[in-house]
């Protein structure tokens, strides 16, 4: 994924999608851990998984849109030493990969018996049926561990952003917040 670097900031759409995704990812992580421990008589017992699945499918669509946006648009210049830039890119790509691993494994849990996934009652994502043995259990384990890995990596990602902001005095975080649209010299 080679992008042209421009001196302008991130596009508004990318900024919105980035922070929306951040919010949703943490919400999904928390709701996912919480909902599997719900009591049968909790009023959320049925609603929480329904919302979790619905939001998950919508985030998948948003993420697909996001990738199209990223591929089509230019990005601001990068900061820091080459190795750090490289590391940041690897983290970004792995975050995308983990997101898709989550979408797919979550989908496989709910569709293992041929049932589709109802998204807020608006539309239904059809099932592919059982693709392999013990699908809901295997996919469930993957979903769980990938979610933890993603959250761990998101923390690394956030720490990186804070380091850029507070230690290196780079405008990385400001750019992603849309607070700065113009930058001066590229690099150090």
């Amino acid at each position: 994924m080679q992008h042209t670097e421009s001196a302008r900031g991130w596009g508004l759409a990318i900024i919105i999608v980035h922070w929306l995704t951040a919010l949703v990812v943490f919400g999904m992580f928390a709701s996912g851990l919480w909902m599997v421990g719900l009591n049968y008589y909790s009023s959320w017992y049925k609603t929480a998984p329904f919302l979790h699945k619905s939001v998950g499918i919508l985030l998948l669509l948003v993420t697909l849109l996001r990738i199209v946006l990223r591929l089509k648009s230019s990005r601001p210049v990068r900061y820091g030493p080459r190795k750090a830039q490289y590391l940041a890119s690897v983290v970004h790509i792995v975050i995308y990969v983990l997101l898709f691993a989550l979408f797919f494994s979550g989908y496989l849990i709910s569709t293992a018996d041929g049932r589709g996934i109802d998204v807020f009652g608006w539309f239904s994502v059809p099932a592919l049926g059982q693709l392999f043995e013990n699908q809901e259990d295997v996919a469930g384990d993957i979903h769980f561990y990938v979610a933890w890995t993603l959250i761990g990596l998101v923390c690394v990602h956030a720490l990186g952003a804070l380091k850029h902001h507070f230690l290196d005095k780079h405008p990385t975080l400001k750019l992603m917040l849309g607070l700065q649209s113009q930058v001066g010299e590229k690099g150090e």
């Binding site: 998984p49 018996d113 049932r115 259990d137």
Partner: peptide
């Protein structure tokens, strides 16, 4: 026991 089948993957899980 892991062969339990209630015709609903999420419930079986």
């Amino acid at each position: 026991t892991d062969s339990v089948d209630s015709n609903h993957a999420e419930r079986d899980k």
